[in-house]
Design a protein around this nucleic acid. Sequence first.
DNA 1: TTGAAAGCGCTACCAG
DNA 2: CTGGTAGCGCTTTCAA
Lengths: 342, 342
Amino acid sequence: MVVHDKQNRTPVRRVTLEDVAKQAGVSRAMASLVIREEPGPTSMTRLRVLAAARMLDYRPDRRARSLASPTSRLIGVTFGGAGHFHFDLLEGLYAAAADHGYDLILSAVTPERGEQQALDSLADFRFDGLVMLGPPVAQPAMAGTIPMTVMGWSVDHESVDVVRTSDEHGMALAVNHLADLGHRRIAHLDGGRGLVANARREAYIRAMGQRGLGGETMVVSGGEDSLDGLRAAGELLAAAELPTAVVAFNDDTAAAAVSLFAREGIDVPGGISVVGWDDSHLAHNPAFDLTSVAQRPHEMARAAIERIVARCDGLDVQGREIVLEPTLVVRSSTGRPPAMDR
Amino acid sequence: MVVHDKQNRTPVRRVTLEDVAKQAGVSRAMASLVIREEPGPTSMTRLRVLAAARMLDYRPDRRARSLASPTSRLIGVTFGGAGHFHFDLLEGLYAAAADHGYDLILSAVTPERGEQQALDSLADFRFDGLVMLGPPVAQPAMAGTIPMTVMGWSVDHESVDVVRTSDEHGMALAVNHLADLGHRRIAHLDGGRGLVANARREAYIRAMGQRGLGGETMVVSGGEDSLDGLRAAGELLAAAELPTAVVAFNDDTAAAAVSLFAREGIDVPGGISVVGWDDSHLAHNPAFDLTSVAQRPHEMARAAIERIVARCDGLDVQGREIVLEPTLVVRSSTGRPPAMDR
DNA sequence: TTGAAAGCGCTACCAG
DNA sequence: CTGGTAGCGCTTTCAA
């Protein structure tokens, strides 16, 4: 940052480590150690430096710091559509990175700005680890060249770490919960064509089969946002037999379905039960109060950062894929089926 | 970036300007000038340096570059909810910044991570200009300390630039278009409590008044996403008299309304006309084909960057607020009212 | 036109 | 335990 004077011209010098050292009456080297919380300085010097830093309102220059050390302590993050869930992940990444003394540098992937461009711009900052929040790609461009973690989907590359929530387990929780309530005709309102949607769809089919409900399988093609959910729920209504329950791809589509059902005079859960996914603010919203499969974005973020930091430190990392178990948060959008048919 | 060897340990040196200079057989200073496209070197040296750079696949180190020069050539960007429109803005900002030799550093504002934290982390990179995409705040923390532009809303501070689309004009376009078609009962499905929503709501009331339709004013409180739109549209349907047209806060809410109307057997535009806002991919979607108020995100982005670059160069900037005129893209969601009442 | 040299703010390695 | 000092990769003087 360059602070300008009233005429908005002359850049004013920011406070440097040198200033802090001088103020504390120690050498720059000492000040550096104190600031970085490295062992060495006596608690006496520590206090003086810290006091000086505070009174001068010192903030280390990340560029200089990153340039001077062999490791940049910068973690690149690519992100795409950035739904609410991704925002939660970002929040967690910021916190976790800070805890490890790392900084995040973000790069957006847009329709016009592809993965490669996003990575290039990050590369110009010499990041030493990469987190990809999306968009999901089967073969990330930098796979194998740098410590890297993808979040939310799977990548089949031996040096790409994966942090995700178990779709298999989440779907089993949802289906079993509904089946336990007496449901048999349980539909899946899917998430479209993405890698994640595919995984959940398959998990649904498997879960239904395992529960002996293979014959009742019903997939309605949907998408990621509420508009998709609306359309898909409409298709559901047009079907010959309405299922007694539906597991949606996420809370957005689930909420859209609930809204539509309500408008059509179908009570939730009286007429139909609905399960969402992500346990987002929508699920908490009393207007929907969705039973939802909960991922733990902050834990996922923490795991991703720890993984990358470990690899940066040259530690050997065991287990390429971290699969967190989701939980099912039961709220009022699920209940017993309208009639115990069969 | 640090490239690692097979054991994932020893950082491998990246190609530096020195390498390029050596390869081209010139001094580092010359190479620097060529890379930055500064006048000085002969076209002969130019060619040699450029060739060397290309063959070595040289990319300047942004940290070093930014550290060495009095100006960092880094523009900070804060962003919040990041709807589709914000993504379009980001895309434009990247392109415009690159054209001026600047780089973007992004910082997310999340529920847990406030404006101040976001700005602090940017400040550690010593950015020399700031673009705020959101969340909209009436008094940005750094107002007056640095060249800064907010996009999409207004800030009442003499040294904060504003780039936005005229809500007044956009609303007038929408209302006049509908009135010209013969509509009188034109409702507004608003955007909730934000600064932008307020501006559009007031613009709607003004536009109706100016068209002599002050008595027909009808505001339905909505929100920013399709779920809000769905709920608001439901309220609209519950009203005693259905309006013959509705101007929505954005395309998401408009599309949700269209979906709901369709489900209720109300033809669009036969039974009711709907106007969206942003001219996003939803508006283009043949399923909706929305008449929509079009902002030009790329031009807005360009204007914001040019503004900041000008201020960084110490140029005096005339006119604190850049208000772009939106256009109305007419598609098939608007038509004549069902009956020419009154 | 070109090249040598002095930093930017910091880390990391020396000697003391 | 402490304080010099040599860089990191680049820009920017200033002489030649």
